[in-house]
Simulated assay, not measured.
Amino acid sequence: MKEPLADTLELSEADKEEQYVHAVYNEIATHFSDTRFKPWPVIERYLRALPIGSLGADVGCGNGKYLGVRTGDIFMMGTDRSESLVDICQQRSYECLVSDGLDLPYREGAFDFAISIAVIHHFSSEERRRAAIKELLRIIRPGGTVLVFVWALEQNGRRKFSESTQDVLVPWVIPAGSKNQPTGEDRIYHRYYHLFREGELPALFEQVGGCAIEEVGYDRDNWYVTARKEL
């Protein structure tokens, strides 16, 4: 499931993410969206437990799967770095805009909660991953919560990774003969991931500070953390 990162060693962190994350998701957006439709239970539980009237941000919202979990009694805004995925969200009438997760277009304390699902593992250095968590905490009010999911190095499902490296390129295949690739051969794209070891995600929250970790868990080959911003 992984490719060597030798050809990325000369790239800057931002260029690596541009080539192996941003550009890829713009290319695969429609096919990717077709595979993302059912909310994961832990995330749905978190969203359904929020008080009526809560205002939240989905940072790295993809096709808007979680923006539609509670449309009647809470309000969510989405951001994603992929213009193509934001287009899909807007076609579904979700409030969504293009934005980098390291520089969100929101004032400090604007939201009651924020989620970031399968996003922070795409940042290519510890400093940038820490900055992404800091930005999530910046945009929520004191007492608000954030929920973050990242891919785990320790995989129990169909994906298996070597313990020798946490930084991998993971292929995304659009099969020949599918509606997204009706002719020719399979199209293969490679996405950069940093695979998180057990304890690594809560350690980043502790390094950022200003919050209390309320829950740490493992679900669907992901580590997740729920944290509350200090009053």
Rank of each mutant, 00 (worst) to 15 (best):
E135P: 07
L136T: 08
L137Q: 06
L137I: 00
L137G: 03
L137E: 01
R138Y: 14
R138I: 11
I139C: 14
I140H: 15
I140Q: 08
P142N: 09
G143I: 02
G143N: 01
G144K: 01
T145S: 14
T145M: 13
V146H: 12
V146N: 04
V146F: 13
V146W: 14
L147V: 04
L147A: 04
L147G: 11
F149A: 05
F149Q: 03
V150H: 00
V150P: 03
V150I: 04
W151R: 04
A152M: 07
A152R: 03
L153P: 03
L153F: 00
L153Q: 13
Q155I: 02
N156V: 04
G157R: 09
G157W: 07
R158P: 00
R158N: 05
R159T: 12
R159V: 10
R159I: 08
K160W: 08
F161L: 06
F161M: 05
F161C: 07
F161A: 06
E163P: 01
E163K: 15
T165F: 11
T165L: 10
T165R: 10
Q166R: 15
Q166F: 10
D167E: 15
D167S: 11
V168E: 01
V168N: 07
V170D: 00
P171K: 05
P171F: 06
W172V: 02
W172D: 00
I174W: 09
P175M: 11
A176C: 12
A176N: 00
A176Y: 03
